[in-house]
Structures are given as C-alpha cells and as structure tokens.
Amino acid sequence: MALSLVAYIREFARVEWAKKFLAARTAPLVIPPYFRNYPELTGKTCTHHLFCMMACPAPGAIDVIRTPEGWQPRIHVGHCIRCGLCVEACPNGVLSSGRILESMFLDNTRLSFSFAITVDLDRCMGCGNCAVACPVNKLIDAQMSHGGRASTDDLLLKVSDGKCHVLHVEKCTGCKTCEHHCPNEAISVARLLEAVHSPEEEPWTS
C-alpha cells in the first residue's frame, strides 16, 4: 500500500508528464454539417400551416406560438428527439437542422400526408374545447375561437346535436391540438405520412 503510493507520486512528479498534462489540447468541438441538432429558425416567415406539429412524432416537442412579429415555431428541447421531420415538413423552410433542407432540394423530395379524425361519440360531451382551440377553425371563423359559436359550415370541426362533428377533414393540418385538449379523450387524429419524390414543380408554393 505504502509502496504503491510512493510509486504513484514518483510517476506523476516527472517533469515530462506534468508538461504533457498541462499543455495537452483537444480539437474544438464542431458540429459537423450533416449532424442533426435541435431545429433552429431560419428567419423565413411562418405561415402557420402547422405541418411541423403534424409531422412531429414526439409529444409536446414543438408548437407554434403567436409572437408580436407573427407565428413562430417553438422547440421544447426536453421533448425533441432531433428526427428532423418538422424541417422536412415545413412548406416554407422556416426551420433548419443539419443538411436536411439541402438534401431535400437536391433529391427533390417532400413529405406527403393526410389525416383521419375520429370522434368517439360515446365519450364526447360536446364541450367544444376542440373546435374552439383548433387553429384551422380559428383562421376560418373568429366567432368560433371567441367562444364556440359557429358562423359558417366551412369549419373543420363543429359541435352539433351535442357532439363534435368533422366537417372538412381535408383542412386538417394534423396539429393534434384537438386531441391534446379533449378532456374526455374522445377525439384522435391519425396521420398518414410518406416521403415522395416530386419530379416536377414545387408543390408547396401554391
């Protein structure tokens, strides 16, 4: 015991060792361009299509908030799994992470999606939380978002005969706000997502 202690002290007291120890440097940590980090804002304008939320597989990892400058995606790093699907899904390139945007451009790929909303009529109380909170409804009908009165049938969701009804499923952007805010777990959104090659025009500018 005592001997080995002496051996240690002798080893570490050597000048060469001390020099090496103090002078050693590792290369600075650089994130390589192909590495996917948490998505960042590119500065492009968000149009509140909420494709990012829809594509995100991690619950609670991304939402889109209203700031004084307009809509803006917000990443919750604790939840984000850095899959990059939101970057791929965004039609306006608002987000970036690694070389995703670049490779999409080169490969001419995009994500294609559609949704199915199901309402469990036994559970639904017709409280209207989903229809009032729905961001799509909000854009269509201000009266709906200010307290649940439908002034048009162009809405995505609407309460009639005491239950929530899906009027225009094609308008759904898959953000799942309805699902998250249903107290009865009566509504759910299923997304069908696939990557497709789009040889011709850019479909998202329309």
């Binding site: 109380m125 017709g126 409280c127 209207g128 939380n129 229809a131 009032v132 909170a133 909000k138 201000a142 978002s145 200010h146 307290g147 649940g148 805010h181 107290p183 009865n184």
Partner: peptide
Amino acid sequence: IEAHPRHMSRYTTFADG
C-alpha cells in the same frame, strides 16, 4: 366538463379574448 361542458370553451380556458 361534466356539469358545465361549455364553460371552458365559451368563457375561460379556450375562448380567445
């Protein structure tokens, strides 16, 4: 949600003001 189903969507939590 049970007793006053529209309270949250019409007056409080979900209604924009």
